[in-house]
């Protein structure tokens, strides 16, 4: 298994993700520039946190036009695993790979704090290493993490079990306490909390490791077979 971490201008969690993948999870990971046009050779693609293009206009609004996003869409359409964390989640919604949008937190402040999360669906490629019903705590660090979707979209998300993580103590006003969702096909994950910041006992928590272990389980089960 080999992972790509996309570096957009203004991404700032790209190296953290690479560290979490390579050094902690044993998944070789490369930083791939947003100007690249191909994702050949990768089994999973990560869109990291940060402030792509300064988050000017709207979070993720400019990043979605990067050359690499054409390849990301193609990769996702072929069933490849795509994970967007924080700003990566915002980019995925702007790019139309995930439904809904992320607004300003109701406090209008950036919030950096530990967030307890319920794993709502542990039967996904991203959460199968967590026992069903587990509660984990991951750091959040965002100003615009307040998830919004219209009522019809929310019904679809609930019905299809696309809500993966829910805040147990909603920090930002997200509808239905949503912290992370997948697309209908289940191969694209977007989440506001940062699993890559909860990988080491020294830093206070290893609750995030399950996201990466789940992907390893899934890939080992299925074999590395993403076509491009």
């Amino acid at each position: 298994m080999r992972a790509a971490v996309i570096t957009f201008p203004g991404s700032n969690c790209d190296e953290d993700l690479q560290w979490a993948l390579t050094e902690i999870s044993g998944i070789p990971a490369d930083l791939v520039a947003a100007t690249a046009t191909t994702l050949t050779g990768y089994d999973a693609v990560f869109l990291p946190g940060g402030f792509s293009y300064g988050d000017y206009l709207r979070s993720g609004a400019i990043a979605r036009f990067s050359p690499i996003m054409t390849a990301v869409k193609k990769f996702a359409a072929a069933g490849g695993f795509v994970v967007g964390i924080c700003n990566g989640f915002q980019i995925l919604t702007e790019a139309g790979l995930l439904p809904g949008t992320l607004q300003w937190n109701t406090s209008l402040h950036f919030i950096c704090a530990p967030a307890p999360l319920e794993i709502v669906n542990s039967d996904t490629p991203f959460t199968n290493a967590y026992p069903a019903g587990t509660t984990i705590t991951l750091p959040i660090a965002h100003g615009q993490g307040n998830y919004y979707a219209d009522p019809a979209t929310l019904v679809a998300l609930e019905t299809n079990h696309q809500i993966i993580f829910r805040y147990t103590d909603n920090p930002n006003g997200s509808v239905h306490d949503i912290a992370g969702i997948t697309n209908a096909a289940g191969n694209v994950l977007g989440m506001m909390p940062h699993p890559e910041r909860a990988m080491e006992t020294l830093l206070g928590s290893t609750d995030g490791r399950g996201v990466f272990q789940s992907l390893i389980h899934t890939m080992e089960g299925a074999g590395s077979n993403v076509a491009n």
């Binding site: 700032n12 969690c13 190296e15 953290d16 560290w19 979490a20 946190g49 402040h109 950036f110 919030i111 950096c112 704090a113 750091p139 660090a141 940062h194 890559e196 910041r197 990988m199 080491e200 020294l202 830093l203 206070g204």
Partner: peptide, 27 residues
Amino acid sequence: LYQRYDAQVQTNTVVLPGSDAAVLRIK
């Protein structure tokens, strides 16, 4: 106040704000 600051990016922060001193490991 300090919850409005990202204290953890770069994943080195061992001791967070609110302590005598902040501590960062060197990877």
